Amino acid sequence: MKKQLLTKTVLILTLVILLPIVGCASGGKGRPQGPPPEAIAACEGKSVGDSVTFTGREGESIKSTCQEVDGQIVAVPEDMPKGGPPRS
């Protein structure tokens, strides 16, 4: 009886420890990966190298250049660091 209780306690503690780790590994913030829809829409009908401005998620104007990313033309902000956004 005590062995079953100990086993259940260890299992529960293991889950409590592992669930936050799994959440962080999958992005943590719940934010989708890849370019935002606004960046994709800004370059619809445009060519690689075209300058565009689009409204970001927080209402800010973002000066960008259309570039091909993973086979799709998207607006990449002019102040984007080389290699993409910083990873958290």
Rank of each mutant, 00 (worst) to 15 (best):
residue 76 V to F: 05
residue 66 C to T: 03
residue 47 S to V: 03
residue 47 S to E: 13
residue 70 D to W: 04
residue 76 V to N: 07
residue 72 Q to V: 14
residue 59 G to E: 12
residue 57 R to G: 12
residue 70 D to M: 11
residue 75 A to N: 04
residue 60 E to Y: 10
residue 74 V to P: 01
residue 65 T to C: 00
residue 71 G to I: 05
residue 53 T to G: 06
residue 66 C to N: 04
residue 51 S to Q: 14
residue 56 G to V: 10
residue 76 V to T: 11
residue 55 T to I: 15
residue 77 P to E: 02
residue 74 V to R: 06
residue 77 P to T: 05
residue 47 S to R: 08
residue 57 R to Q: 13
residue 59 G to W: 12
residue 55 T to E: 15
residue 52 V to S: 02
residue 68 E to R: 08
residue 48 V to E: 01
residue 50 D to W: 03
residue 50 D to N: 11
residue 59 G to I: 08
residue 54 F to G: 05
residue 76 V to Y: 07
residue 68 E to D: 07
residue 72 Q to C: 05
residue 78 E to T: 09
residue 56 G to Q: 08
residue 57 R to V: 10
residue 67 Q to R: 15
residue 62 I to T: 04
residue 51 S to Y: 09
residue 64 S to E: 02
residue 68 E to M: 07
residue 54 F to N: 10
residue 74 V to K: 07
residue 74 V to S: 00
residue 69 V to N: 05
residue 53 T to W: 01
residue 53 T to M: 12
residue 75 A to W: 03
residue 60 E to M: 09
residue 59 G to K: 11
residue 69 V to E: 02
residue 49 G to W: 04
residue 56 G to N: 12
residue 54 F to Y: 15
residue 69 V to F: 10
residue 51 S to N: 13
residue 65 T to V: 15
residue 77 P to Y: 03
residue 65 T to D: 03
residue 48 V to D: 00
residue 74 V to D: 00
residue 52 V to P: 01
residue 58 E to A: 14
residue 61 S to H: 10
residue 74 V to C: 01
residue 72 Q to Y: 02
residue 76 V to W: 06
residue 49 G to Q: 04
residue 66 C to R: 07
residue 68 E to P: 00
residue 49 G to F: 06
residue 61 S to C: 06
residue 69 V to A: 01
residue 69 V to H: 05
residue 47 S to L: 13
residue 78 E to G: 09
residue 77 P to I: 01
residue 66 C to G: 02
residue 55 T to M: 12
residue 63 K to H: 13
residue 60 E to R: 12
residue 59 G to N: 08
residue 63 K to V: 05
residue 71 G to R: 07
residue 49 G to A: 10
residue 58 E to P: 02
residue 72 Q to F: 00
residue 50 D to P: 00
residue 69 V to C: 01
residue 54 F to C: 08
residue 52 V to C: 06
residue 66 C to L: 09
residue 70 D to H: 08
residue 61 S to T: 12
residue 73 I to W: 02
